[in-house]
C-alpha cells in the first residue's frame, strides 16, 4: 500500500496546481474537441470531468506506483518535500493509442448526444476534474474547496444543465456538489439522454456495470433499455446491476497490486472477451487485467 499521507499530499499539491490529480494542465490533456465543430451554446453543457482524458496518464502512473508499492522508499518520500512521482517521465510513457482512444470515446458520446437531438454544447474552459478522488480519500476540506471553485465557475457562466460522460463525475456533480456547495444544477448522465439511432453495432457483449451506475446512481435498468434500443446484443452475469462487482479501479493508486487482483476476480466472472462498460476507470482496469473491453460509446460511435 502506498502511504495514504504521501498520496494525499501529492493529490493536494497537484489539484492546487492544475485542478487535476496528476498535476497535468487541462489544456494539454483535453484535446478531444479540436476539429469536432463543437457548439458553444445550447441547453446541456457537456462536462467530461477529465476522467477519460486522464486514464492514459493514470495507467502510466499506476505502473510506476506499482513499483513503489512494495518498496521502503515511500517511507522516506513521505518525509521529503519533493514530489516523488516524476510526471515528466510518466508523460513520456503514455501510450498515444490510449490517448486517441479516450478522445474517440468522448467524441462518440458528444456525437451520440447531438444525434439524439439533445442541444448539447461544450466549453473547454469550464470543463475540469470533479475532485472525486479527494472525496474518496477522505480529504474533505480539499474536496469542498475544489467543488466550490468548480460550482461557482459553472454558476457564473449561467449553466443550469449538465450532461456527464462517466459515472464518477456524474455522482460527484449530481449527488455531492449539491450537498457540499448547494449547487442546484440539473445533472444527467449521457446514458439518460441518448435516443437510439441506427448505429450498426455488431458483436455480442457481456455487461460490466460500473459501481456508481449500479448502486450509487441506480441507472442499470435504464442502461439496458438504451442497449435494447440500439439493438446491442448483450448478456448479464450473476453479479450485475445493483449487485455488480468492482473492477478494482478506485484503489489503483493506493495499491496497484490489490487493484489488479480485484480486476482479475471480476474478469473470472465476465470472461475475457466482449466486455462492455461505461466508465473510463473500469475500461482501464479490466483491460489491464487482460480483458477485451469496449466502452459503450465505441460501440455506437456515430
Amino acid at each position: 500500500m502506498i502511504a495514504p499521507r504521501l498520496l494525499s499530499e501529492i493529490l493536494e499539491k497537484n489539484m492546487k496546481k492544475t485542478e487535476n490529480p496528476l498535476g497535468l494542465k487541462n489544456e494539454r490533456i483535453n484535446r478531444w474537441w479540436t476539429g469536432e465543430g463543437i457548439e458553444k451554446d445550447g441547453e446541456w453543457l457537456f462536462f467530461t470531468g477529465m476522467l477519460y482524458q486522464l486514464i492514459p496518464y493514470m495507467d502510466s502512473a499506476t505502473r510506476y506506483l506499482e513499483k513503489l508499492e512494495t518498496t521502503k522508499l515511500q517511507g522516506v518520500l513521505t518525509l521529503s518535500k519533493i514530489i516523488p512521482v516524476p510526471f515528466s517521465l510518466i508523460d513520456s510513457m503514455v501510450s498515444h493509442k490510449m490517448k486517441k482512444r479516450s478522445d474517440r470515446i468522448l467524441k462518440g458520446i458528444y456525437r451520440a448526444l447531438m444525434k439524439s437531438g439533445v442541444k448539447v454544447f461544450y466549453v473547454p474552459e469550464l470543463d475540469t476534474y470533479s475532485g472525486i478522488i479527494l472525496h474518496d480519500m477522505g480529504m474533505e476540506r480539499a474536496f469542498r474547496e475544489h467543488a466550490e471553485t468548480v460550482a461557482e465557475r459553472l454558476n457564473d457562466a449561467g449553466i443550469n444543465r449538465i450532461v456527464t460522460a462517466d459515472p464518477h463525475t456524474a455522482y460527484a456533480l449530481k449527488i455531492l456538489y449539491p450537498e457540499y456547495t448547494g449547487s442546484d444544477i440539473q445533472v444527467k448522465s449521457y446514458l439518460e439522454l441518448v435516443r437510439p439511432f441506427n448505429a450498426g453495432s455488431d458483436g455480442k457483449f457481456v455487461i460490466h456495470d460500473p459501481c456508481y451506475y449500479g448502486r450509487y446512481l441506480r441507472i442499470s435498468e435504464k442502461i439496458r433499455k438504451v442497449l435494447d434500443g440500439f439493438g446491442v446484443s448483450y448478456r448479464d452475469v450473476k453479479y450485475s446491476k445493483n449487485l455488480t462487482n468492482c473492477c478494482g479501479g478506485p484503489i489503483e493508486s493506493i495499491s496497484p497490486s490489490v487493484s489488479w487482483k480485484i480486476a482479475e476476480l471480476r474478469i473470472e466472472e465476465l470472461g475475457k472477451s466482449g466486455i462492455l462498460t461505461f466508465c473510463p476507470i473500469c475500461l482501464m482496469n479490466l483491460s489491464r487485467a487482460g480483458g477485451d473491453v469496449s466502452d459503450f460509446a465505441e460501440v455506437i460511435m456515430p
Partner: peptide, 26 residues
C-alpha cells in the same frame, strides 16, 4: 484505504449500514 468504496457491503447489509461512508470518515 484499501477499500474500493464500491458499495457492495451496504447493498447486501440487512441493516443498510453505510460502511463506505464510515470508511471515508475513517
Amino acid at each position: 484505504f484499501l477499500s474500493t468504496l464500491c458499495g457492495k457491503c451496504r447493498e447486501v447489509c440487512p441493516s443498510d449500514i453505510d460502511m463506505p461512508g464510515m470508511i471515508r470518515k475513517m
